[in-house]
């Protein structure tokens, strides 16, 4: 597979919590580069720094040191270089959660369209894009249903549609297959790979699910806040 532009470039990133005897180093001198079309997994035991790294790439958590460049734009270099981090996330990053985290008061279609609404799309175009994505993910028939009425697999596909709605080039997934059986998990990962290729996006996944390890281009192991191997 031909790899494209560098979408994530993390250089010398460190993150510690607390000071003195209570100091915990969650990340130490982490360097990571992810290119368009790549699907990678962050692996490691609990407390190894996987989620912290995901939060740093997602601009949710400020590193203590280092540099982060997303889609060619430097966003952190000792400090945040942009004030509107939420807008940055809206434009560049899509999130897929372990528990899908759909808004319970919106229908499946509205859950997807809300991202486009926040991004300033006209309502009719936003709805059309949401329907298009749901159809593509084979849950178009569930568009008017509220999340409580969706099966686990349907809800996760709606969540993927939401993550992709604004055509982000970086998709961060936190245990996206944890709530799915092995067959569904495989299907979801195949779908993500297909989308990554088609949209020239990269996908960074935190997972413990060994059944899907063969779906990734790279497995990145973290131990005590350091990259063990890549």
């Amino acid at each position: 597979m031909a790899l494209g532009d560098i979408l994530i470039e993390v250089t010398g990133v460190a993150k510690h919590f607390g000071e003195g005897p209570t100091r915990v180093d969650a990340l130490r001198e982490v360097d990571l580069t992810v290119r368009a079309g790549e699907v990678i997994a962050l692996l490691g035991p609990s407390g190894s720094g996987k989620t912290t790294l995901l939060n740093v790439i997602g601009c949710i958590l400020a590193p203590s040191a280092g540099r982060v460049v997303l889609d060619g734009e430097p966003v952190f270099d000792g400090k945040w270089l942009r004030r509107d981090l939420r807008r940055l996330r809206l434009d560049k990053i899509g999130f897929i959660f372990q528990a899908h985290n759909l808004l319970p008061f919106l229908t499946a279609e509205e859950n997807v369209a809300v991202v486009l609404d926040l991004a300033g799309w006209p309502p009719d175009k936003g709805r059309a894009r949401a329907r298009e994505l749901l159809e593509y993910l084979e849950v178009g028939h569930r568009a008017p249903a509220k999340p409580a009425l969706l099966s686990g697999g349907e809800a996760q596909r709606v969540a993927i549609a939401r993550a992709l709605a604004n055509r982000p080039r970086i998709i961060l997934a936190d245990e996206p297959t944890a709530a799915l059986d092995s067959k569904r998990a495989g299907l979801v990962m195949d779908l993500l790979r297909k989308l990554a290729t088609e949209q020239e996006a990269c996908i960074v996944t935190v997972t413990h699910d060994e059944k899907i390890f063969d779906r990734f281009d790279r497995l990145i192991h973290l131990r005590d806040g350091r990259l063990a191997d890549a």
Binding site: R87, R89, L90, L103, L118
Partner: peptide
């Protein structure tokens, strides 16, 4: 609160 956290994460501004 969890829904608000989700909204923040997907990029909703404070005014929303």
């Amino acid at each position: 609160l969890k829904q608000i956290a989700t909204l923040k994460l997907i990029g909703a501004p404070d005014r929303t």
